[in-house]
Design a protein around this nucleic acid. Structure first.
Length: 550
RNA sequence: GCCCCCGUAGCUCAGCGGACAGAGCAGCUGCCUUCUAAGCAGUCGGUCGCAGGUUCGAGUCCUGCCGGGGGCGCCA
């Protein structure tokens, strides 16, 4: 019996009580069942009576007694008792819990998937770096978190598009071109230009492939270098992200919004909605109508359309492409954008609570040998995605970044996350994957066939604990998706890993020496297989590998 | 000045209003002739920043204060 099935049973019990006129309440859409911390509180506990007490206008314990009466005796339910202020402590029938192993093995890597987000088309925009340099630590965090979030949303049934917005227009691009042109010509780069080693390398590369660029007049030379640099730098970012196991479905260029007239159309649309006004020669959007602390300029008095105007056009474009929900991952330095992005949605006639999720991520620092790592050989003052992966390894970087909530500031110790001991949660979890695989290999060597098994034999306390943890996985995935918090997957895996290790320690799976293969061997082997499936799937949701050996 | 995030064990941090606040590390004590000891068991460790409020019940929600970080452009 899975927690979801138990939830259904509890709801059915409440419904029966209501039908019999014993309770005057609405049957709740969802019921919280949890694994109590203390053994004597049973396999599962629910606070449903406490929550219904007010509506029923009866004391919680009395409500609990009524529900307990209808719940006891249902299929799979062993015993139900009322405890504390009105909790229902539930014990499952022997064997009912073990059925879960069959479910997991049948469903394989689909186990944990749900349909809570079925029908939603979600656009997840993240990283969105300027194509003027390498990806830095902040981008690396969003790459790990954003991709994990996209995987989790898909597991919850949503149709997900990963999108990268390329800021390929404006003064930063011009400075980039100017810096490259200067570097190629052996001239000093302006102070406010780009200075990392990668600029010189890139400039040299371009000059080698296109020596004719150097003969162009200065302004054309800057444009030529800008365009060639853009193409190459973007390709590098894309390659770095693909190597990081992050694949974007859409690379969206800011320029195309301007070139296609989408920005003008957007301004026109917003004007029709009545939120655009002219003042001091500029064109503004009255975002203060929707909670922004000041109005925002769409077209500057010099005729130039602002970045904000492109943001508005971009949002409208996403909606036109059919996305029901747009998720933005932004760095903390962009938190000022939240109010204005919401205002754009509201000005366009949407309800921002329904169509937008803006996740603000705090900064990341990495520390090695007790000191902050700040310098990169490639990029000067910044540490790049590639530097970090070189330093710590792909799995360690992805896992370490994805295991914290995005909005908590993060200090990662490189020595810690690369250590191959259980100091390091990545290895602690991956070790379970390797251990389960090792047991599986060993079973094959002993010629033990997989086949029917009796789940009722899984009665050891550690087996029961493991079944309980495995059963929680679908709800963890659903919650992580609903709250946009992929780190919950990592925390769950760490918990599951501990429970498995304790099971492994107490419950010998395979025969020792001349011992015979017993029905318990088959049952435990199936439990081991089920654990492998869940650990591997959980790691996959984080973009981390589940090694066969370590 | 206004806005956002954070404040939980010595450290890094979990904790969707529920039962005696959790994990890992660090410290101390044990466990490998058996499926991976990259593991397990035990022990030590807390005014959940402070003060009010809402609630049957608050680390969790609300208000104020204190401390730390970040942000506030006709920049991108």
């Amino acid at each position: 019996m899975t927690p979801a099935e138990l939830t259904d049973a509890i709801r059915a019990a409440v419904r029966a009580a209501v039908d019999d006129g014993r309770l005057a309440v609405e049957v709740p859409g969802d019921v919280v069942v949890e694994r109590p911390k203390r053994k004597e509180f049973g396999d599962y506990a629910t606070n449903v009576a406490l929550q219904l007490a007010k509506a029923a206008r009866r004391p919680p314990r009395e409500v609990a007694e009524i529900i307990a009466g209808y719940l006891a005796g249902r299929a799979g339910i062993g015993s139900v008792e009322v405890a504390g202020p009105g909790f229902l402590n539930i014990r499952l029938q022997a064997g009912a819990q073990g059925e879960l192993v069959r479910t997991i093995i049948e469903q394989g890597s689909r186990y944990g998937n749900g349909d809570t987000l079925r029908g939603q088309r979600i656009n997840v925009e993240f990283v969105s770096a300027n194509p003027t340099g390498p990806l830095h630590l902040g981008h690396t965090r969003w790459a790990a978190v954003g991709d994990a979030l996209a995987r989790v949303l898909a597991a919850a049934g949503a149709e997900v598009t990963r999108e990268f917005y390329i800021n390929d227009r404006g003064s930063q691009m011009d400075k980039f071109g100017e810096s490259l042109a200067a570097a190629a010509a052996g001239e000093p780069i302006p102070d406010d230009g780009y200075h990392g080693d990668y600029i010189y390398e890139l400039a040299k590369e371009i000059a080698t492939d296109h020596p004719e660029f150097l003969t162009l007049p200065a302004d054309q030379r800057r444009v030529a270098f800008r365009e060639a640099g853009y193409e190459r730098q973007l390709a590098r970012q894309r390659r770095a992200l693909e190597n990081f196991r992050v694949h974007f479905d859409v690379w969206f260029s800011e320029r195309t919004l301007h070139d296609s007239g989408a920005v003008d159309d957007a301004i026109e649309t917003l004007r029709r909605q009545g939120h655009v006004f002219d003042h001091d020669g500029a064109t503004w959007l009255r975002t203060t109508d929707f909670g922004d602390d000041r109005d925002r300029v769409l077209i500057r008095s010099n005729g130039e359309k602002t970045y904000f105007a492109a943001d508005a056009a971009y949002y409208l474009d996403k909606r036109r492409r059919g996305f029901t929900r747009c998720i933005y991952l932004l760095g903390a330095d962009h938190h000022g954008y939240v109010a204005r992005l919401r205002a754009i949605a509201a000005c366009a006639g949407d309800d921002p609570d329904q169509t937008l999720d803006i996740l603000i991520g705090q900064l990341v620092k990495i520390v090695k040998d007790g000191a902050e790592v700040r310098l990169s050989k490639r990029a000067g003052e910044i540490v790049t995605l590639e530097d970090f992966v070189d330093l710590a390894g792909l799995d360690a970087v992805r896992y370490s970044l994805a295991r914290y909530p995005a909005d908590s500031p993060l200090v990662l110790d490189v020595d810690l996350i690369t250590r191959q001991t259980n100091d390091n949660p990545v290895f602690y979890v991956q070790y379970v994957a390797a251990r389960t695989a090792s047991v599986s290999r060993h079973a094959r060597e002993l010629g033990i066939e997989r086949g029917p098994f009796d789940p009722a034999l899984l009665t050891h306390e550690r087996e029961s604990d493991l079944l309980g943890s495995l059963g929680e996985f679908p709800r963890v995935v659903a919650t992580a998706a609903e709250l946009r918090e992929p780190h919950r997957i990592a925390r769950y895996l760490e918990e599951l890993a501990g429970v498995y290790h304790r099971f492994y320690d107490s419950c010998r799976i395979l025969p020792v020496g001349d011992e015979p293969v017993t029905p318990l061997t088959h049952a435990r082997l199936a439990l081991n297989d089920a654990t492998r499936i869940v650990i591997a799937r959980g790691l996959d949701l984080l973009g981390v590998s589940a090694p066969e050996r370590m």
